[in-house]
Design a protein around this nucleic acid. Sequence first.
DNA 1: CTGTTAGCGCCTTCAT
DNA 2: ATGAAGGCGCTAACAG
Lengths: 344, 344
Amino acid sequence: MATMLDVSLRAGVSKATVSRVLNGTGQVKESTRQQVFKAMEELGYRPNFLARSLANQTSNSIGLVVSTFDGFYFGRLLQQASRQTESHGKQLIVTDGHDIPEHEERAVQMLDDRQCDAIVLYTRFMREKTIMALIESIKTPLVVINRDVSLARDRCVFFEQQDAAFQAVDYLITQGHRDIACITVPIHTPTGKARLEGYRRALEKHGIPWDQARVKYGNAEMSLGYELCQALLADNVRFSALFACNDDMALGASKALYQAGLRIPQDVSLFGFDDAPSARWLEPGLSSVYLPIDNMITTAIDQAIKLAGGQPIEAIPPFTGTLVLRDSVMPGPYFQSSSSDSSS
Amino acid sequence: MATMLDVSLRAGVSKATVSRVLNGTGQVKESTRQQVFKAMEELGYRPNFLARSLANQTSNSIGLVVSTFDGFYFGRLLQQASRQTESHGKQLIVTDGHDIPEHEERAVQMLDDRQCDAIVLYTRFMREKTIMALIESIKTPLVVINRDVSLARDRCVFFEQQDAAFQAVDYLITQGHRDIACITVPIHTPTGKARLEGYRRALEKHGIPWDQARVKYGNAEMSLGYELCQALLADNVRFSALFACNDDMALGASKALYQAGLRIPQDVSLFGFDDAPSARWLEPGLSSVYLPIDNMITTAIDQAIKLAGGQPIEAIPPFTGTLVLRDSVMPGPYFQSSSSDSSS
DNA sequence: CTGTTAGCGCCTTCAT
DNA sequence: ATGAAGGCGCTAACAG
């Protein structure tokens, strides 16, 4: 591998000069400049990244650690993150935290060690305290995505999950459903809690009593959606609508419903969450809530880059979800064509 | 950030000694060893990764560039790659090639510059010639996944795509289907070509003439599966079975069939490819071909690590797909209960 | 066992 | 406009 010294010798100049033409810093006579370029060409010279980063104390890259690589959601996130980072002329380094806080923590540190200019962290289970400790223990600026850490509000980019869930269930209710079951995503995460809370608040708003039997605690996977829906059925709990806290589980649930001879939406209405790509192609099309994940990650990257550049930042307002209505919901038993809409 | 010098001063030893305890190399008296540890603790010392890599000429990490981050397929790939890499005590650095050969090429070079110990490349569109040139132009060993580059056979890890597709269509035929339509994935990729060729060969084996009207060229997306299936219907081509070259398009197609009032599998049988997680939860369950992607990437990483360690490697036999039969296929019009199976 | 010294490849004052 | 020299933080002989 040709080094800068090789180039300088070949071009008959000093390393300093080569460095100058390489970085476009300082003044270099056009003619010598050309010689240097020529020498670089001939030697197939490519600067050593590590050496450069070491000297500069920056690697011109931003790090991203996600809780997992799996699922359409993260695929989209990564893809957009990559684009956005590159549009800033930086490189994205991504790492899988395996959904384990300790692992995510190590991943962040490793990115810190690699001299990333900034780090973006997506975590589901890490505690706020740990996040704060992390922010303080590393030298690289950190922005947290999908979490609202109150002590570092301006480092956070997140969705209004609770409100989105609320909207979905509220919609179900205004469509005449009162017996609404719910299958949650992991309830030990802020996201899981928030979605369930949105469900609860919607019921509350309409004076529908909470029925513990109607909520089943899931983990986000299709298979669990299936099992929990079966459990609901086996328990004989009555519901005219089912709110699944993500589309994957909604799909699993739909299978259980089908096998029980229940039709969607005639017998039970189904509402998902995330608006997976498949939602619109299922039969019937799955109503779901869309989360502007692309916007969110783009914003997070921008924020990270500002931080990296030492620019002033301000808190990002939460992103909001929107309902995507398709065909998996039908007016329920309590539907009133022109309900006097008890708009609170 | 505390440096090694700080630690050495605090511990009253030299940098060399600190380096020794850090790497467990050479002999160090237990007592001084403890002092050094203590000093590191107190200073919250963390070795500078770049400096270390620069001195070592290795970053103890392996690079992976995928054609895109999107889709369940790559999610799974990345996840497994990450696990496997870490099980070898190395770090995985992944990069999105945006499905653009030039981009993928740059990504590989960038990983090369970063002193990765080895690089794994997943590309759909890059030409073999370019791949070969790349292998020769970089200093890091490269292993290619999902492609069979004959000039570098021992660097390749791939599936027997054609055979898998053949199996699927052959199965359809033995089930009594002769009018089988096909929706392809991008035909300019080896994968796309191979799957279509598998389809062709299966027809050929059974003496079914090729009918150009029955094959539609797709791009892998759900929406195109939908559109192409609609086109098939609009063109009035007759088919009792549809072979979609991936599950996403199969899903899109199923929507088109449904809207046309055609039932799966009663009116048309459907076969997918990839065995997406959703396949088994759809209604009816989608028959598909499973590709042992986890094994493949695991093997690729292992191969990469051997290469990195200068160990001898041998060519990896191609992986084979297996049919996963669910409920989307029914016996077709030519079905014979105990066909004299013209086993070739 | 431990310290000294010389790099790894590049950048950056400071002179000239 | 260019060169010399020192430094980024760590590793690796080579002496003691």
